[in-house]
């Protein structure tokens, strides 16, 4: 399964994603520069974390108009799996590929720590191999992860089961204390209506090897491979 990893000026998790896909999962991976328009026939697109365009104006605001995003739009519309991580999630929101917007964390602080998230649905390409209700430990690193949507959009997200991850306690309980950034409904990740586009604030690519005793992030990548019938290493 060939993965395309988008690279914007200011992306800084692109090589982490590349390492996971290429060296851990043994799958081909291509970097795709934001000025390119050809996705080169990749089977999945990853929009990595970082600070595209220095977060100028708003996070993801300028990246949404990079030439490559038109191709990503077409790819997503055709049902191709797209994973946006952190800044990648912010770009997907600005591009309108996912509904809602990000606000500054309610603490105003850049938060970099491990959090727990509950998998609300296995019905996305990147959570297909994860039991619904399972609690994952994943790192977050962001200043704008305070998810917001108007009440009608939130209701639609809930009704269509598009809320994929919610911040929770270690035991899987949703509470205000377990919500690191003030996100509406403790939302840590959502998918689009056709479920092939997923945006998440935590960084699965940062906990895949067990060097820090945690391999929960690997499940994202294994899911998308298993869905395509590929046995990962």
């Amino acid at each position: 399964m060939r993965f395309g990893i988008l690279v914007f000026p200011g992306s800084n998790c692109d090589h982490d994603c590349y390492h996971v896909i290429k060296h851990l999962l043994g799958q081909p991976a291509d970097f795709i520069w934001h000025k390119e328009t050809d996705l080169r026939g990749v089977d999945a697109v990853i929009i990595p974390g970082g600070f595209s365009y220095g977060d100028y104006l708003r996070t993801g605001a300028i990246a949404q108009y990079s030439p490559v995003m038109k191709s990503v739009r077409d790819f997503a519309r055709a049902g191709g799996p797209v994973l946006g991580i952190c800044n990648g999630f912010q770009i997907l929101l600005e591009a309108g590929l996912l509904p809602g917007a990000m606000l500054r964390n309610r603490s105003l602080k850049f938060i970099c720590k491990d959090v727990f998230v509950r998998v609300e649905t296995a019905e996305t390409p990147f959570t297909a191999a994860i039991a619904s209700g399972r609690v994952l430990k994943l790192p977050i690193a962001h200043a704008e992860g305070n998810y917001y949507a108007d009440p009608e959009t939130l209701r639609e997200l809930q009704e269509n089961r598009q809320v994929v991850f919610r911040y929770c306690t270690k035991e899987g309980r949703i509470s205000d204390e377990a919500n690191p950034n003030g996100s509406l409904d403790s939302i840590a990740g959502i998918c689009n209506r056709s479920r092939n586009v997923l945006g998440v604030m935590p960084h699965p690519e940062r906990c895949t090897e067990g060097l820090d005793g945690n391999t929960d992030g690997r499940l994202f990548f294994q899911s998308v491979l298993e869905q395509s019938g590929i046995q990962s290493r």
Binding site: L57, Y65, E94, G100, A101, Y148, A149, D150
Partner: peptide, 8 residues
């Protein structure tokens, strides 16, 4: 298109 995000 760009200067404001009309969601927020």
């Amino acid at each position: 298109k760009l200067l404001a995000n009309t969601v927020i």
